[in-house]
Amino acid sequence: MTAATHGAGAAPALSVRDVSHSFGSRKALDGVSLEAPSGAFTALLGLNGAGKTTLYSLITRLYQNRSGSIAVLGHDVRRDPAGALSRLGVVFQARTLDLELTVLQNLLYHAALHGLGPAEAKRRGLALLERVGLEARAKERVRALSGGQMRRVEIARALLHRPSLLLLDEPTVGLDIGSRRALIAEVRRLIADEGIGVLWATHLVDEIEAADRVAVLHKGRMLFSGDVAALRDRAGTDDVGAAFMAVVTEADAAAPGASAA
């Protein structure tokens, strides 16, 4: 493997190259490429059914990519799954905390799955809970928390094993506007403080800021990948939402043969 070095040569937090995936005859992903650099917020924009969940399943190795390559910080998911998964933190769209267990127990379980012993896990877990403002709730059952608090616990959990890449799949679904803002601010602080790479799947354009990177996934194809300014330029509008829709509409118009699924 090429030695990753400082600066320009460093492997990106996530690199997806020319990945396709089909379920039976239905092509869920078609030649998708994407890069999420370290220390940056990359938004994966897509409407429902665009293939975001399939892409996340492949990155997290729920099933394996048959074509193309996926690498986390230079570690190929297929050839070196342990190296890739140990550098990856995930917050799934569905809530994945055990409601019957306490907040801390949930964190300890996850830490054990990454080979972290209880003492070290507890130390890290409490520090992370403090960071997300929930250290006082450590001994409470998860059931007693609000939706926004659960999400913050899930983020703390995803960071326990100190990943280089944090994947979030529509993390703000079902949250009120206050919790949404707090969550986004928290993740942006993480990027600034820890320099991790973040891939944030969403269909809500107001979660994107001017300095972010954007990837537009539509019907299994990557229509655009670059920074926000480039997306605006391409669509000729200042509004990110309008630019997103313009790119999507343009693609639909160009491929009339693709009948609605």
Binding site: R61, L62, L88, V90, F92, D98, H110, L113, H114
Partner: peptide, 14 residues
């Protein structure tokens, strides 16, 4: 269905 299985399966262990 609730996704806890996903948490198990993203463990780096085989």
């Amino acid at each position: 269905e609730v996704g806890a299985m996903r948490i198990l399966l993203v463990s780096p262990y085989p």
